[in-house]
Design a binder for these strands. Sequence first.
DNA 1: GTAGGGTTAG
Length: 483
Amino acid sequence: MIEAIARRLSDQNSLISGYIRRNQMQRAHQLFDEMPLRNVVSWNAIMSGQTDPHQLHQLFLQMKRAGESPNQYTFSTLISGLLNRLQYVSLVPQLHGLVIHSGLRSDVFVASALMRGYTRLGDREGLRRVFDDVPIKDVSTWNALVVGYMDLGFTVDARIAFDKMPEVNIISWTTLFNGYIKNRDIDQARSIFNKMTQKNVVSWTAMIKGYVRYEKYVDAIDTFVAMLESGTHPNHFTFSTLLDACAGSSMFLFGKQLHSCILKSGMCREVVLLTSLIDMYTKCGEIEVGLHIFESMEKKNTVSWNSIIGGCARHGLAKRALCEFEKMTESGVEPDDVTYVNLLSACVHGGLVEEGERHFRSMGVRYGIQAAMKHYTCMVDLYGKAGAVDKAERLVKEMPFEPDVGVWGALLAACGLHSCYEVGEFAANGIEKLARRNPGVYSMLTKLHGEKGAWSRAIETRNKMIEISAKKQKAGSRIELVI
DNA sequence: GTAGGGTTAG
């Protein structure tokens, strides 16, 4: 009898995890809710399918209330699942306490999750403490230490840890050189990459992305060619990285070639790839193609909407951008901070001051998105370009943080555009404090002084410019690369 | 029967 009950419970647990593997969350939950008896495995299984940190935390609390004791599976699932939302990362030290209390600190899975948690918290000592507490470390524990040190900027410690590792795998190597990429040392990264005896699609893609990140597009493509020559097949991560390179350097022909490769490869339904394609086309001047791909997408998420709103904004289609935003919210996709940057820059391009003001006001109220510096920059730009320099100035003065070069620059540009001498000096002083001897500032000030007829000031500024041998930046163009 | 490292889009 007892055996029969146990078998039934175990079968139901298997079913739950089966549903989760096939992404049938509703079915999993329905079964979980209907189960007359649950054990720790049932809770762990249902928790593993929960991607929302809030819901996950609630499940954990319910589990405790139901009298079930969490085990190592519970903690590793819970901690990992909480890491993608900042407010829940702060629970990591408390959970660490519970882990120690439950006698589970020597479990390598739990330790890895905790180490990633402390890394997120920027807590180097916490990271090290968890690592040191594991008596028998496996290669993943060591890798977590290397990635932690790298993410916190301690490249030397990361290297020491790597050299001490009893065994390394391809993931350790990739973690190491990718750590150097994150810390802006692309040459060191490449030298380690060259030492790898085995490379796979992940390591190749990471190296290519490293070059793209630092705008070394020729190196990125050379590396891609080397990857193909080595017989490694690109996956959707690789393609999306390459499309990013095309978008960043207007390599339209190469971008189109990639598009046809993607179509042939059968990966063309991936949301990330389609979004990369939209971005590539709109940044290469092909807004119509971008819109066409966007319309044809079955599933759209926040990033895909952002890319089309941004694309419309860049192409001066302000009304269309606003219209897409309406469609986005109607379809139930939540906007984020980037959505609003794109939306507000659409308003800047279209001179839509009232719409911009309305959206700027509502982002916090409706969606709880706090206006950041970049949003203020858009608003200053919006007012400035539309000739409301007084409003732009007021906004700069009322901002909840110290303006950065971008904000001051937008204000100064507005003053140049509308010949506002006093505010121009105010903005120039602001920039001067942050970035001394900025040639653009002197150039603009000279213009403003001249317009006002303050010739002695104009000459004074001009001389300052010569003194630091500031020259207006030369315009340049990039020649399209075709392979 | 339940869990973990390295690559992706705005």
